[in-house]
């Protein structure tokens, strides 16, 4: 479980014009583990994720993947390495069914026509591999699915491509308790199947329920990367709100310590 990290960022800097959003951020993700990425609004979580996904080019620092230094210039580069991101809005098309959504833009062809049979089989296999039993038919339109089922489809879509790292942005926000439970179980299962999962969440119960490691961002800096078995709830809250907690966290915190 503590094998070499699959994804490692070292000293990442990122600015938008005059505003520096990420300062010297390092971030490590291990296969078979759920790494929770926590931080207050504006701490830089989404920017960091978009840098990993190749949407924003990084200004400085190193991006290592499977032990090799890589240069990621576009989402396509990231996808080719096996990094998939599920955004909060899920980006599913309501007027298409589950299979069509899962293969959207990457459809399988046989000759000139779409290879529906293969796509259906792959989609069914992926959902089965995740023990998803809540979806009645994979030919169901996405508009007819509940919030939890949509999240499930979006996650399955990310897993379909033999991805190695799956990043989930607030997957349980706006879900009820029962559906949250389903999604969290799925998150855990992804990691148990050997994937590296990054979970962005504001809900401390979700974070402590499934994660193996917790990384806390504070005002664009990585305050701490800790194992979930070594910290308490209040320490994480302190890291999020003030960047440090006891021996953990940043040495100097932009004057926000007092």
């Amino acid at each position: 479980m503590t094998a070499t990290p699959i994804l490692q960022l070292r000293g990442i800097d990122k600015s938008f014009g005059p505003v520096q959003v990420l300062h010297d951020v390092s971030f490590t993700v291990h296969p078979g583990e759920v790494t929770a990425l926590v931080g207050d609004n504006g701490a830089g979580k989404s920017t960091l994720v978009k840098c990993i996904g190749g949407i924003h080019p990084i200004d400085g620092g190193e991006y290592w993947f499977e032990g090799e230094r890589v240069h990621v210039h576009s989402p396509r580069d990231a996808a080719a390495m096996g990094v998939e991101i599920v955004y909060q809005d899920l980006a599913l098309c309501d007027n298409l069914d589950i299979v069509q959504n899962m293969f959207l833009g990457r459809e399988k062809r046989s000759g000139l026509v779409l290879d529906d049979a293969t796509m259906e089989e792959m989609a069914a296999k992926t959902l089965e591999g995740l023990s998803v039993r809540t979806v009645k038919s994979i030919r169901q339109q996405v508009s007819s699915l509940s919030g939890g089922q949509r999240q499930t489809v979006a996650i399955a879509k990310a897993v379909l491509w033999n991805s190695k790292v799956v990043i989930l942005d607030e997957p349980t926000a706006a879900l009820g308790v029962a559906q949250t439970a389903q999604v969290l179980e799925l998150v855990r299962r992804l990691a148990d199947n050997g994937l590296a999962v990054v979970l962005i969440s504001h809900n401390m119960n979700d974070v402590f329920a499934v994660s193996d490691r917790i990384a806390a961002l504070y005002l664009g800096r990585m305050a701490a990367e800790v194992k979930a078995s070594d910290v308490t709830h209040s320490q994480i809250v302190e890291l999020i709100t003030s960047g440090r907690s006891g021996d953990l966290g940043l040495a100097h915190t932009n004057g926000a310590t007092a």
């Binding site: 401390m204 974070v207 402590f208 308490t232 709830h233």
Partner: peptide, 25 residues
């Protein structure tokens, strides 16, 4: 099951501060 999902932060925190480090690793 429901109780755990609704209070995982407390449960984990208690374990992390009371169980032996090697046992909970």
């Amino acid at each position: 099951r429901e109780v755990f999902l609704g209070s995982a932060a407390q449960i984990r925190s208690r374990i992390n501060s009371q169980a032996l480090a090697a046992s909970r690793e």
